[in-house]
Computed example of a mutant assay.
Amino acid sequence: MDMMGVDRAQSAAASLIDWWALAGVSHTVSETPVNWLAPIAGRDAAASSAPVHAPLADVASARALMPETLDAFHAWLARDTTLVEAQWPQLDAQARRVLPAGTAAPRLMVIADFPDADDLATGKLLSGEAGRLFEAMLGALGQARDSVYLASLAVSRPAGGLLSDQDAMALAERMRHHVALVGPQHVMLIGDKTSRALLPMADPVNPLGLRALNLGRATVDAIGIAHPRFLLKHPSAKAQCWRTMQILLEAMA
């Protein structure tokens, strides 16, 4: 196959993954066969239909294992073998991790969902064409890459860019601890996956405005925007994204 054919195949695969993501598919595929038609007993059926929530004791114990300083947290993300990402079957122990960048107490902390292929290659979040658009967006906010704290929910990329609900919950709890250590004045969440993980409750009165990101003992104002990778494929969404960013710009003034 020539390079043009390879590019077409890669583009088709990426388009198919994005289509399923937009359709609402958010679960990775298990290799264990499941009999979906098997009858379920009444009590088990009720349990299976109930939403999954992490017990408060589990949340507290998970936080207790996380480092309490930002430098130690960075080192933990870089090396710890018990991270959620380290358990993903498609990744080996040497899978590259793309770590956060920035210093504590910034005016703005930016949180993406997970690294893209360009990010894994460069070791830097929001690289390539998406990174260039991201930097232009920061410029519109009067910020630059080196003036913000940039992180992602996951430090590795899940298969197909899909996160299970359980993994998203664990990564969100870790990120709340992370945000508390960073101590930003405002937070900008990039991508629908990120917003749904950290701001699960929609505000019907002000769906596009600032919302309180609960950190446990404190809150910080946060706002969600589309990911640059989405804007590159759907340019018509840029106008809405800019309107949302203007709300953040006014809050930061």
Rank of each mutant, 00 (worst) to 15 (best):
L153G: 02
I223F: 00
A104S: 15
V148W: 00
P67E: 11
A159V: 11
P200T: 05
A57K: 05
G128T: 08
S61D: 13
D221N: 03
L150Y: 04
D18C: 04
D80V: 02
E250S: 06
T103F: 09
H53I: 11
L150I: 08
L199S: 09
A46L: 14
N206T: 12
T28A: 09
M175L: 11
A12M: 15
A104L: 04
T103Q: 15
A151P: 03
I17P: 01
L70F: 15
T28W: 03
A14Y: 08
N214S: 14
A47K: 00
M109W: 05
G42F: 02
T81Q: 15
V29D: 08
A172F: 12
D203L: 02
L91D: 11
A151R: 04
V220Y: 02
Y149G: 03
A154H: 05
A93T: 14
D146F: 06
G191Y: 05
P51V: 04
L77A: 15
V110A: 05
V155Y: 03
M175T: 15
W20I: 01
D146R: 09
I247L: 13
W20T: 07
P51F: 03
M1L: 13
T122H: 13
E85A: 01
A57Y: 05
Q166E: 15
D118M: 03
G24T: 07
L215W: 06
S156N: 13
W36P: 09
I40F: 02
Q246S: 04
V179D: 11
A95T: 09
S26C: 12
A95M: 03
A62N: 09
M1Y: 04
S152Q: 01
A170I: 10
S11I: 03
A9R: 14
P200C: 02
W88A: 03
P89E: 10
A144T: 15
Q87K: 12
I190P: 06
A112H: 06
V52C: 07
V155D: 06
A45L: 05
F114R: 07
V52R: 00
A12F: 11
V187L: 02
P158T: 07
S11L: 14
P184D: 01
L208H: 12
A9C: 13
K233F: 02
S195F: 00
R217A: 15
L231R: 07
T32D: 14
L213D: 12
P89G: 11
L77I: 14
L126H: 04
L56G: 08
A54T: 12
P228M: 01
E129N: 05
V59A: 03
P184K: 00
H53Y: 05
R174Y: 07
A41I: 01
D71I: 11
H227N: 10
G216V: 09
P33H: 12
A172I: 10
A117Y: 08
L231C: 06
L150P: 06
G160D: 00
A62L: 12
P51I: 08
D71M: 11
D146L: 05
P33W: 04
L56R: 05
G224C: 07
R8G: 12
A78W: 12
V59W: 05
